[in-house]
């Protein structure tokens, strides 16, 4: 039991994306919840195997875009009608068709900034260090050619020996404990 205080979890290494998908599915079916798969590229089918829910990035993007667009339009309205009305050849102060290009640009700008920074925030990035980087094989291969699956010690079902044995049974090429620091 004293392992749990300084063990982040156990990690298994796989050679192909297909093995990772299978392993993720079997880990989920074995009743683990706190586990994570790692791949050097987005693997099609992995999210389904892990039963990941829809993420919040699209909603954040929508809100950002709406704020950018509405903010952009009403800001131009405020400038042109209230703060600094200029009579240009008798055109109406609220010449809304002329405000559309800037409104459009600010919609795109608001949505794009929210998409990127929303994604980073939800992912908890930037985060320079992570316990998994303590695993040599992970640090060398996770971002180039190997696939990893980590069962975290926070899972109620986690037990160092059992979880290690379970990962070995998934045809992993390498299994090791992840030290927390």
């Amino acid at each position: 039991m004293d392992h749990r205080s300084h063990t982040y979890g156990v990690v298994a290494e796989f050679e192909t994306a297909e093995q990772l998908i299978q392993a993720a599915e079997r880990t989920r079916l074995a009743g683990y919840h706190a586990f994570e798969a790692y791949a050097p590229f987005p693997v099609e089918g992995l999210a389904e195997a892990m039963a990941l829910k829809r993420n919040a990035v699209p909603l954040i993007t929508l809100i950002g875009g709406l704020l950018g667009g509405l903010g952009g339009f009403f800001f131009q309205y405020w400038v042109s009608v209230i703060a600094y009305p200029l009579n240009i050849g008798g055109r109406p102060y609220n010449s809304w068709p002329a405000f559309i290009p800037v409104t459009f640009e600010l919609t795109v700008l608001g949505a794009s900034l929210s998409a990127v920074f929303g994604m980073l925030a939800l992912n908890g990035l930037p985060r320079p260090h992570h316990p998994l980087f303590n695993v040599d094989r992970f640090a060398k291969h996770a971002t180039s050619d190997r696939f990893f699956l980590c069962i975290e010690s926070s899972d109620p079902k986690f037990s160092l020996s059992d979880s290690l044995r379970f990962l070995k049974s998934l045809n992993a090429v390498n299994v090791s404990e992840v030290e927390d620091d």
Binding site: P42, V43, V57, M119, H130
Partner: peptide, 19 residues
Amino acid sequence: MGWRGSARHWHRYQSAYLL
């Protein structure tokens, strides 16, 4: 920024990239 290729990260990353 500490990218480690987590499946949950990729999931959000792909949404953001597509958007």
